[in-house]
Design a protein around this nucleic acid. Sequence first.
DNA 1: ACCTTGTTGTTTTTCAAGCAACAACATTTA
DNA 2: TAAATGTTGTTGCTTGAAAAACAACAAGGT
Lengths: 263, 263
Amino acid sequence: MKAPRDVPNALLESLKSLGLTKYEALVYIGLLRVTGATATEVHEISGVPRASVYPVLDRLVQKELVSVSHTTPKRFDAVPPDQGVENLMRRIESDAEGARTVLDALYREKRPEARDSQEQIWTIYGEENIRARLAGMFRSAERSVEVLATWDLLQESVLALLEPVPDSVQVDIVTDCWKGERSSRFGIHILPLATLRETRCAPGKLLPYESSGVFLVDDARALLWLGAGDEQRSALYSESAGLVLFVRRHITSVTEWARTTGQ
Amino acid sequence: MKAPRDVPNALLESLKSLGLTKYEALVYIGLLRVTGATATEVHEISGVPRASVYPVLDRLVQKELVSVSHTTPKRFDAVPPDQGVENLMRRIESDAEGARTVLDALYREKRPEARDSQEQIWTIYGEENIRARLAGMFRSAERSVEVLATWDLLQESVLALLEPVPDSVQVDIVTDCWKGERSSRFGIHILPLATLRETRCAPGKLLPYESSGVFLVDDARALLWLGAGDEQRSALYSESAGLVLFVRRHITSVTEWARTTGQ
DNA sequence: ACCTTGTTGTTTTTCAAGCAACAACATTTA
DNA sequence: TAAATGTTGTTGCTTGAAAAACAACAAGGT
């Protein structure tokens, strides 16, 4: 009889998000530590009330996480973890696949309805979402793409997205340095590091803004990528005339500066 | 103002298993059908009580399924389905990864404790689990592997698992037919279809058992794969002397018969 | 007679779901 | 300008459903 050794809370949460209840998680974890336990032993090991152990074990068998012996009393055994987690994931993934299909159908029904959305300013959370939006902007470019970003951000997340931009679109990039081959397709301007990466905000205080960027497409769509420290990445996107104009001015002034100083 | 068109129940269930609540699912689905809706519009579209819409939208933003505009009033927009589902899956997969790691650590702590587990008969549910166990049996083979299975089962699920068996182990296979190249490593016996696939159980009644198999390793470990119609696949595994002996006799008799009749 | 297994039914707890009311603010109307 | 009206966003409370926890008992084995 082992102590119901207490279980890391994070583990319980993880298993819950895989579709298990607290009891199911506790019983499965308990079973991993022994071989062929009876229901009562499971109760002792996991700390789950004995009466609750039976329905829980039934569900776990149903979910292909434990196997049952044909003896009396029944004995239970856990499926090895990676096999078990795999089994859970398979269900979830098939659900995800189904959901994606149906949702996509609904999504396509939406009338494009360009309407007055161009007056809004959107915040986008999550790096993946930001990159997706950036990709969309670049893909829709017809005349010009302007990029003002730190090199690390460029390197990591932006350059790849610029690939599909056709040659007919003028692409200008301002950054703080450049490593590797400089594509002849782009107009590239290098600006001293101090200016881009740090901004003097108060007398003597430096406000470092790491991994940030400004993007402008066709003078009509702008995205501000705010690399907020360790918080969740976020960005602003807008087609509003006001914000676009602001970004337009910002980029122009920085570019001008680059031309007079840097070059 | 659109009707809160009713939503397929299966879709709600799928989204729940991806970690959304009913409200979260309804709001997200509703948002997919419009562009830049206000909280009140979301309430009208989704049928979710207006007061509940705010916390729900907060959570959806947190989960990277919707983006918010910086206007007043705030406007909300859904991220495209495959992007959104992707975002949900990423979280779940990272949970799965974490859980697998921790569980594996616990699993390895288990003393091998071979104990009297060889007297038990285990039932295994789910094709994946059965195959995993079979693979384990084959991997542990030291002298002999005997297989008695219908060709379709062999072909689909078994032959691949026999790959890692070393040449020093004698492998015998009895099946109802053989298509393709016959590996010289195996002793192969063909037995007429009627015998293997159908079994006369009552006078005149035939009991077809499709996709079933019997496996015996080193005369010590046996697995019975029961291809139960459309129900969940299941199997029996045992190291118990009784069951092993039974399987031993069964295979021997069938093999004998094959030798006298078929050949 | 005693203990263990397995089952059933009931209570408690927890969290989502649903509802009512209100402060803040903007828009309209007198 | 002031009152009337309406909308946004919040707070707190009630309802309801599912899991968690407990109590009690029939069946069977020693």
